Amino acid sequence: MTTSSVRPASVDDAPTIARLQLAVWRQSFATVLPAAAVNTDPTSHSASWANRIEWGGPVLLALEGTEPVGFAAATSEPDRRNLLDTLGEIEVLHVVPRWGRRGHGGRLLVATAAELRRRGARTGRWWVPQVDSATARFLTAAGWAEDGVRRELDTGAAPIIELRWSGTLDLVAI
C-alpha cells in the first residue's frame, strides 16, 4: 500500500509545484482563467514559486508515495477587525484531478491549518472561484462557510468572481 503524506516544500520543489499548478489550471480552470495564465511559461512560474518558498511560505507538498500530487500555500496577518488576533489565509490548495478523492486535499487542509495555527491564527479564509463547486463542497464538508463577501478579479478577459469562505483552523481530520 502506498503511503500518503504532506511535507514542507523546499526551493528545489518549485519546478514541481509550478508543474502541478499548471496541470490543475489546464484541467480544472481552463474555462475560467485567461489563456495567458493557463499557458504560462513553466520556467518563469517555477521562479515565482521559488521566490515564494524562499520568502517563507508556508508552502506544503502532498505526496502519494514519492509522487507529488498537490500543494498548498498560505499566509497570515493581523486580523483587521481585532488586531490581537491573527487571520490565516489559504492562498491556494490544489490536487491534480487524477489524484483526487484519495484524501490529499483533506491532508493538505489539515496541515496548512496546523501551520497557520503555529503562526498564531485561529480562523482562516479562502477565496474560491464562484464556479468551483468541487472546492465549495470540500469546504462545506470541512465546516467552512461562505461569509457573504465576494470580489471580482479583472483578468483582461472575462472577470473571475470569487467568494470568500471562512472557517476554523482547529481541523483534526477531514
Rank of each mutant, 00 (worst) to 15 (best):
T135V: 14
R122N: 11
T112K: 00
T86Q: 14
G120P: 03
E91I: 14
H94W: 15
L84E: 12
L83A: 13
F138M: 08
G65V: 09
P129V: 11
G56F: 14
E77V: 10
L84S: 14
L84Q: 14
G106M: 06
S133V: 15
E77T: 12
E89N: 10
E115D: 12
W127T: 04
R81W: 14
T86Y: 10
L93S: 10
R102D: 06
W127G: 04
G65F: 11
F71K: 01
R80C: 11
V92R: 14
V92Y: 00
V59Q: 02
R98G: 04
L116R: 01
E115Q: 13
N51Y: 10
R81F: 13
L84P: 00
E115K: 08
R119L: 15
D85P: 03
R101T: 09
A62H: 05
G105P: 02
V95Q: 00
V110Q: 06
R107E: 07
L83T: 13
E91C: 10
N82A: 15
R80Y: 05
I90E: 02
A74H: 01
L61A: 04
A73Y: 06
S133P: 00
V92T: 15
F138E: 02
L108K: 04
D132W: 11
H104Y: 04
A73W: 06
A74E: 07
N51E: 15
G56P: 04
A73K: 05
R52A: 12
E64G: 10
T75W: 09
I90W: 03
Q130N: 11
F71A: 08
L93G: 01
A73H: 08
A111I: 09
P78R: 14
V69D: 00
A50V: 09
F138L: 10
P78E: 07
N51K: 15
L109E: 03
E89F: 06
E54V: 07
E115A: 13
Q130I: 10
R119H: 13
Q130W: 09
G120D: 05
R117W: 06
R81G: 15
V92E: 03
F138S: 01
A114W: 01
